[in-house]
Nucleic acid binder design. Structure first.
Lengths: 161, 161
DNA sequence: GTAGATGCAAAACATTTGCATCAGT
DNA sequence: ACTGATGCAAATGTTTTGCATCTAC
């Protein structure tokens, strides 16, 4: 935790930005909830518990800055709010998501599934791929036993655009 | 074109909705621009040329209704606006997109690229897949010759969340 | 006539921006 | 003091909603 904060501090200083208390508090919230794909509003509410004077705009500006510096990745699951997660600087592309239409939980897949697919797309369409986005919408292992056939039609409508 | 309108009329009637002139005009705009992934605002401006009295809310309500009936698919490329395209009721899943970071054009891939990948994900994570979203961000064949190395760093920032 | 559909304006929502103030060097 | 960062409020942009009116059967 502390090493990661220190490393980000250095990255900020390298671009002559400061790691202010607000920025640090925001980053700590994200680090403590790394599994959760928080929205700006989520982060704001959690940061407010520790630093009640912080403003929503500062949270947005911090998230924006961290995204510009490639420390965070802004992601969009189609539900109308942006979410943020740490970038893995080793991975060439960002990872994939399993989104459960029953409980809404988002799991991550870190395997690179698309090597061959990218090659095929690149060849066939003469498209130079820089990155990709892949998500699966369905029912997670925690919910699969709770589902009956009648429900299936309804949960399908939880798949966003 | 007319057959497709007729078919949609029947689908609407089956749910006791009407194909009003406004809805028909909206659908015709979408049919005439099927390649273009129009936003609600885009549709509104185009419909207004034919039916100037139409309101933006009606366009939104029509797009929403068509999405509920699975006639349209609402999609989100992460640029802050929803876009709409016709669903292919034969295809099990929706198709994939190639998004050019230079010119912004969105091409479609209709091949099913993910059969094996889905099987692997399904087995490994015990996740029951209902649908997936896959998009590639990169440089299309029309732009590839225009790019030089200096630009590459800049266009990367056009990849959204 | 009744139920659904429309247009307009207002509201809602996420996000961004202007600006005066504040903090660290 | 200077530069960047903050908090607040106002502005923005997209989408939704309330409501009175209209339309089609």
């Amino acid at each position: 935790m502390e090493e990661r904060i220190d490393k980000i501090r250095q990255q900020l200083h390298a671009h002559s930005y400061k790691l202010t208390p607000q920025r640090e508090a925001t980053l700590r919230v994200l680090l403590e909830n790394e599994e959760d794909h928080l929205s700006a509003e989520d982060v704001y509410l959690l940061v407010k518990e520790k630093a009640p004077e912080i403003g929503l705009a500062t949270v947005y500006r911090t998230l924006e800055l961290m995204s510009d510096l490639h420390i965070l990745q802004k992601i969009n699951f189609g539900d109308g709010v942006a979410r943020y997660e740490f970038r893995n600087e080793n991975a060439e592309h960002h990872h994939h998501h399993l989104i459960c239409v029953m409980c809404g939980i988002v799991d991550e897949i870190h395997e690179d599934l698309l090597g061959e697919v990218e090659q095929a797309v690149s060849d066939k369409f003469k498209f130079h791929i820089l990155d990709h986005r892949l998500s699966f919408h369905g029912i997670c292992h925690r919910c699969i036993d709770k589902v009956d056939k009648n429900e299936l039609a309804n949960v399908r409508s939880n798949i966003p655009g």
